Computed example of a mutant assay.
Amino acid sequence: MAQSEPKFELRPGVPGAPDRSAHQAEVMLTVTYGLHLLGLLTALPLVVASIIAHVRFFMLDTETNERAHYRYMVETFWFGVIANVIGYVLTIVVIGFLIIAVAWLWMAYRFIRGWLRMRKGQGPR
C-alpha cells in the first residue's frame, strides 16, 4: 500500500484564524535546519539539531509536513553518520576522503532542499 502524502500545512488549525502554532513550527524547523547546516562545519550544532529533530519527531503524533520534515532530518543525519564512519574507516585506502566529501555535500544538499521546501509549505520530498 502506498504511503499517504502528508497534509500541506505544518499543523492543522482552524480555517481563517491566525495560526500561531504553524508560525512557531516554521520557526522551529528553520532553527533546526540552520543548526544542521552549521553543524556541518562544527559537530556540536549538528548534535543539538539532531536531538531537537528526534524529540520533535517523536512528540508529534499526526503525520503533518512538520513531522515529515523532522523525519527527513533524522534520516539525513543517520545516513550521514553512517557514510562518514565508512569514509573514516576507508581513509586508509584514500577513497574514504571522497566518501566523506560526498556525504558532506549530500547532507548539505538535503538540509538546504528541505528548508526551501518547508518555506514553500511543502513536504520535504
Rank of each mutant, 00 (worst) to 15 (best):
L105I: 07
E5S: 14
L90W: 08
A25C: 10
T62R: 11
P124S: 05
M1W: 07
G34I: 02
M107N: 14
Y88N: 12
L90D: 08
P18D: 11
H36R: 06
S4E: 10
A49D: 05
T64P: 04
V102Y: 03
F79V: 01
T64A: 11
M118C: 15
G34W: 08
M107V: 11
G16W: 00
K7I: 15
V55A: 03
F8C: 05
A2F: 10
P15S: 10
H23T: 05
G39R: 11
I51S: 02
E5I: 11
E63A: 10
V85D: 08
G121E: 06
T62V: 13
V47W: 13
I95D: 03
V94N: 09
L44D: 03
K7S: 14
W104K: 03
T91R: 13
E26Q: 06
I51M: 00
L37T: 15
V48L: 12
A43H: 06
H23V: 08
V47A: 13
F58W: 06
P124M: 07
L90T: 07
L41C: 05
F57C: 06
S4D: 09
R125L: 11
Y33S: 08
A108W: 05
V47C: 03
V81I: 11
L35R: 10
I86F: 15
G16Q: 00
R71S: 09
M59W: 03
A49I: 04
M118A: 15
Q3D: 10
A83N: 03
K7L: 14
P18V: 09
